[in-house]
């Protein structure tokens, strides 16, 4: 089963994403903070959707740690920020996709579905 982790302090976005992803065939786990999510190994997940980008930029270097593990999950960041430097920094630090909020939910779900299909086909 494809496993997705949602890390968002915003409970609306949490509920919205959870509900939208219930239509795709995946197991979804939700965390409010990165500190909660990091308790168990994140490499168990295939996709991480996060609203908080600072763990990639503050030296904790979550992306590098995930890359070192055997199964590297894909990382999607959703943010209200649109700053070019911020986006480039995140992409350089190992984030796979950057979505600016407000987000088109059907398009996001479409991307994730395509990702799942790709994963299934090996």
């Amino acid at each position: 089963m494809y496993r997705i982790a949602i890390i968002s302090p915003d409970r609306f976005l949490w509920a919205l994403l959870c509900n939208s992803l219930s239509l795709v065939e995946a197991e979804v786990a939700c965390f409010e903070r990165w500190s909660e999510a990091l308790i168990e190994p994140l490499s168990h997940y295939n996709l991480i959707l996060t609203l908080e980008s600072y763990p990639f930029l503050n030296g904790a270097d979550v992306a590098r740690r995930l890359r070192l593990s055997n199964r590297r999950p894909r990382i999607y960041v959703l943010s209200w920020l649109h700053d070019e430097q911020n986006v480039l920094s995140l992409l350089e630090s190992g984030v796979d996709q950057y979505f600016t909020l407000p987000v088109n939910i059907p398009r996001l779900c479409g991307k994730i579905t395509a990702q799942i299909n790709e994963w299934r086909n090996g």
């Binding site: 908080e52 980008s53 600072y54 930029l57 503050n58 030296g59 904790a60 920020l81 911020n86």
Partner: peptide
């Protein structure tokens, strides 16, 4: 301590 201080989401 530095990590904590670099963890603001202000742009």
């Amino acid at each position: 301590e530095i990590e904590q201080r670099l963890s603001s989401e202000y742009w």
